[in-house]
Amino acid sequence: MDILNDVNAIFRDVLENDDLVITPDTTSADVEEWDSLNHIQLVVSIEKHFKLKFSANEIRNWKNVGEMCDAISLKLSA
């Protein structure tokens, strides 16, 4: 499973930006539409898509998309 590819599709859907390309280094500062309310929808969509649950502590320290994808990978392999 290409987690980054799936996450990119989720970002495009939630942020309604079909041209968006994210990389592991992408942060919310790099994407205009990635605001606090959209962040909630992104996390909800990720949890639904990958059928997993995060805690508030687990997502609090994500610094970029790469750390988000690492956390997803870790959950999926647990």
């Binding site: 962040h39 909800v44 949890e47 649950k53 995060f54 805690s55 508030a56």
Partner: peptide, 11 residues
């Protein structure tokens, strides 16, 4: 139908 504790949201 769902609860998302990570972002303090419910559906």
């Amino acid at each position: 139908s769902a609860i998302f504790e990570s972002v303090n949201a419910v559906e």
